[in-house]
Design a protein around this nucleic acid. Sequence first.
DNA 1: TCGCCATGGTTACGATTGCAACCAATTCCT
DNA 2: AGGAATTGGTTGCAATCGTAACCATGGCGA
Lengths: 148, 148
Amino acid sequence: MTDRPTLALEHFLPYRLTRLTDAISRDFSQAYRARLGLTRPEWRTLATIGQFGMMTATEIGAHSSMHKTKVSRAVAALETRRWLVRTPDPQDRRVERLTLSKTGQKAYEDMVPVAHGFETKLLARMKPKERAALLEGLAALERAVLTD
Amino acid sequence: MTDRPTLALEHFLPYRLTRLTDAISRDFSQAYRARLGLTRPEWRTLATIGQFGMMTATEIGAHSSMHKTKVSRAVAALETRRWLVRTPDPQDRRVERLTLSKTGQKAYEDMVPVAHGFETKLLARMKPKERAALLEGLAALERAVLTD
DNA sequence: TCGCCATGGTTACGATTGCAACCAATTCCT
DNA sequence: AGGAATTGGTTGCAATCGTAACCATGGCGA
């Protein structure tokens, strides 16, 4: 009996991940898109500068896993919105030092509890043991995928 | 001491998921894109029909979590490639019954071990306990997110 | 110092995407 | 029976995205 080979899509790890990720980040983006009118790259840029303070565009890309064109456009959009200020680096005139404006900082501080709330509410729907398993498994997968 | 609120992006679940998913499905899509010249929606469509046999476009969308326009375009592409055949449903003339052609079936059968191999190799980089944790955690997250 | 490669960042372009509008066939309601 | 709402599927359009090309500046070796 040579069965035809089959693949159960619903058990296939890459598929499961994309489906989960699509659903979750769609839900989450609604939480801030409606409230702040931000696109996802803009949100990430805001989150990264908010977390680290002054940064360059390249650093933002490295830390938020975004392509540099995405960062460039997101920075431009946030600048138009006056949430972000560029100042040229006196040491190296290729570089722009990016910081949040007062308004941008305020927006960031408003956003943080929304993000935490979203995550908490999501994890609250799982049992403590499942939650622990998820976090352990994700950390291990990150080690397996994102390194070396 | 009222600290400013901060969010550590690298610990934030939606971000971790998108980063992992991006990396993994980029790697995987290279495995078949190079070999078969398929886009991701086309791959999913092939995988879904291959798994279930005859299907309608709507069913493919439901089972593979794809928007109907994506399915429609993927089906058209696979049809052009002659990997897929449409036959009108005699009961309901709105519906197209979609099946793989012999060539399409062959491509599917070639693809299945590649997919399994990819997944196995990925999971092999984790310890058995981590692997178990990941699968348990993902299942729980699916329950939490994709239902009700 | 001069030429060459590397780096920071932007832009042009083609491809992909989702939304909404649409067509055709069917079902529902009265 | 006959119009209204639903469903299966396709297409037009605007927005988004990644690749590659590009510009400007800086670093480095001879």
